[in-house]
Design a binder for these strands. Structure first.
Lengths: 269, 269
DNA sequence: GCAAAAGTGTTGGTAGTACACCCATGG
DNA sequence: CCATGGGTGTACTACCAACACTTTTGC
């Protein structure tokens, strides 16, 4: 039986596989060239050493002995992009014997993260950090193409039955903005009328008394995320905390965009 | 895992976290005492060394350098119970700094498995291996109570939208037997008429021309699992192989890499 | 015949889809 | 005025839960 086996017979050969933590970071971006429809983008880092030197790879690094797994993911994410994740979830552990090199056995615990779109536009880029559209990636190092594909699949699947879309948005948003997020991730257009009813019926969103002005049409109402509902059901797992996770309090006011407050105008309609 | 999460196996400072693979093994069993309704059971092993000596724990062990993750799960599963999994899927990687002892940092990649009920009744038991009803467990070693809770949640959630229930059954089965599996896992009764229509409409099952006789009532038709449909959708991940999995085709060659270390310093910045 | 489970039919509620239509603003 | 998206109403469909009802065996 397994508990009687003892593996430490070999003295100085590596007894255990190496453990790394990587993160697939998603943000929505509007490609200035192709058009105005936002799409899913992600940052990659260029490898500066063998193997796969010069290839693009997921940001990550070895797990420090004194940090939890989500912490390591958030740390490497921040080191790479300067961003703080609004949503962070474990994706999968990749550990095939031959996914790295013959001499090395590396098991990667991969997280996926969502960052706000407006923050992503301020994200640091450099010689060795670049953003790519998620559905048009070059050939990456290791098995990272497969990992990104899987993360994208999870993002799209989860978008349909959870509320993670809010992680892309700011404090307040219009239903059209929320719908744009869904459309960008799912890659297809949604009926505005039905989308509105579905969201309003789910109770995950709270109407404010503010409206977004400056458009060429009727000003849309601004909504706020209902903080009493978790972004995604993790089952019996304790809610994951990472260093940049905001404690569940009332939020600061950072109204982006031109909003007009109509506090004294009575109820609209 | 019982041997791997053992702290005194080290003589020197660890450079990396230890890596273990554990498995939550589910089978359906009928408790001879309480009644005839089958319930979810799982095997545990008793720890024979510190920490948590004497406590029950999930079967598992350290990851060998030359085996893939699902292989390690199936191996320790077989070592413990003598059984072969009909379904095997990665559950989660648990890696909190303080989940073992202060001196030890162990990251456990946990799988969950389903075994056939009739095989489970022949499973080996011993002084240090015992089966427990899944919803009435003692206090386990490490964070294994949480792990089992999470695995149970995944099993129940997945039962509703996938076909994993077939993993509990034999080659042919009646729809009542299949319904019994669902009822045992979900913990509630299902309408036989609606269940029949749902299953038949899903196309996951093929009617045979055989009937089960010897009952006190009208003989039910025997069905067979439709092998052209996967038990569960794993997205873009390649279908997981483990040593006892029936081999339909040859393996793909997933050669990557050529030299040194992976993700050592993934970020360059 | 009777009990018991197999198997069929019917109905009502609910959720998703398609689409017609009105509303309120900027220009 | 018009154009544009915000927002409402409504019919249609598909699926699911509930449950009445018929069928076929063992005893």
């Amino acid at each position: 039986m397994s508990s009687s086996e003892n593996p430490e017979a070999r003295a100085h050969e590596p007894v255990s596989a190496l453990l790394a933590v990587s993160t697939v970071i998603f943000a929505l971006r509007t490609d200035e060239q192709t058009g105005d429809v936002p799409q899913v983008w992600l940052p990659l880092v260029r490898r500066i050493r063998s193997p796969f030197e010069g290839r693009w790879a997921l940001p990550g690094g070895p797990l420090h002995l004194d940090e939890d797994l989500p912490f390591a993911a958030a740390r490497t994410l921040h080191d790479t992009t300067g961003l703080r994740p609004r949503y962070l979830e474990q994706l999968y552990a990749f550990g095939d014997v031959r996914r790295s090199t013959a001499a090395d056995r590396v098991v990667s615990i991969v997280y996926w993260a969502l960052v706000r779109s407006d923050e992503a536009s301020r994200a640091s880029v450099g010689e060795n950090v670049r953003w790519f559209p998620a559905d048009d990636l070059p050939e990456l190092a290791f098995d990272h193409n497969l990992i990104v594909d899987y993360a994208l699949w999870r993002l799209r699947t989860k978008m349909e039955y959870s509320r993670i879309a809010h992680a892309f948005l700011g404090e307040t948003f219009t239903l059209a903005q929320l719908r744009e997020v869904h459309e960008a991730v799912l890659g297809r257009a949604l009926d505005p009328a039905n989308f509105r009813r579905t969201i309003e019926g789910s109770g995950t969103v709270v109407a404010t008394d503010q409206y977004l002005t400056g458009t060429r049409h009727r000003p849309p109402r601004l909504y706020r995320y209902n903080g009493s509902i978790d972004l995604a059901d993790q089952g019996p797992l304790p809610r994951q905390r990472h260093p940049f996770d905001a404690p569940p309090t009332a939020t600061g006011s950072t109204a982006t965009g031109s909003t007009s407050s109509e506090e004294d105008e009575g109820h609209a309609k």
